[in-house]
Design a protein around this nucleic acid. Structure first.
Lengths: 168, 168
DNA sequence: TATTGTTATACTCTATAACTATA
DNA sequence: TATAGTTATAGAGTATAACAATA
């Protein structure tokens, strides 16, 4: 879009496109590896990874849904797949009978451990090999700020009802 | 993964997660806007945007496929949708009868023009509002370097045909 | 009444392979 | 033989809405 970019200067536009391309290529490469190494989609890997990191290896469905998947039914679907493979187990929550506790099984932990080195290696090769130490520090600073801002800016609840931007 | 990250230090790991999260949230927000404002997916918007930027508003299917979609049949599918809506037109290439030239129609240009301000506005709000001028410069430098490196590093499973592995 | 989670269902998108046609 | 593109088909993933159960 060389001409019509009313709200962004060319440096911003370039950074935006670069971010999208880098994110897309990285996601693609990582996804490909996870499938080949462990027959996992990136979403499934995220679910397992969050569980491995959680105290006791367990989280409620709702907590898991926050930040991993965009709908509850989507998480139920993914959890069903992981459950069927024996990578997680679901049990009723003792303190709230509506909730379901999801726990990583040993098999789930093993799979994450098996997949992680190659995963991390791909990230290193693609993302960090071309960076200098200064690059890394700068990137951390900027992305941290942006992430905090995005988290604080309600992304999905801000649905304009009577919309200003409708297509004719 | 606080424990098992053999190949990345914690700063790198944090930067990686931040990048994925920022990219994912940005993609989601932008996609949502494009659908609401113009009933376009991000892929469709990319196709139109590339055409608008191309000399004469036209590109061959193959050139379009490079960097936009992951398979040729995927592009045929998306082009079919855009064609049906009158946003692009397809015609045989005069110099090579195997090729198909894709051209943005006036309706396609209008839709891009209609959608672009809101698109850019969302990017500005989410990505650039929390940044300082130094941040932007740093981000551009790092992402530029990383993107060049990624483009120069084709995925190992480079498939003979189709696919995603082209320098852009 | 609101929240948690599942299910049923429909839809979008993507990839693979077979196919046609041209270089 | 290799390339350009389409089609048929199958599969993964997602969202929406209805639903049941609990708070």
């Amino acid at each position: 879009m060389s001409d019509a970019a009313p709200g962004l200067n060319s440096e911003q536009l370039g950074a935006y496109f670069a971010l999208m391309e880098v994110g897309s290529l990285l996601q693609y490469a990582v996804d490909e590896h996870l499938r080949a190494a462990g027959d996992l989609s990136y979403v499934q890997f995220q679910i397992l990874a969050r569980l491995v990191d959680a105290p006791g290896g367990r989280l409620r469905m709702t907590d898991l849904a926050d930040g991993v998947v965009y709908s509850r039914s989507g998480l139920t679907y993914q959890a069903g797949l992981l459950d069927k493979r024996g990578l997680i187990a679901r049990s009723p929550a003792p303190d709230d009978d509506r909730s379901v506790l999801v726990t990583v099984t040993d098999a789930g932990r093993d799979l994450v451990a098996h997949v992680l080195p190659g995963h991390v290696e791909r990230v290193r090769q693609l993302l960090f090999d071309p960076m200098t130490g200064t690059d890394l520090a700068a990137l951390s600073t900027v992305l941290g700020r942006v992430r905090d801002h995005m988290r604080a800016t309600p992304p999905r609840s801000a649905k304009p009802r009577g919309g200003r931007n409708r297509a004719g």
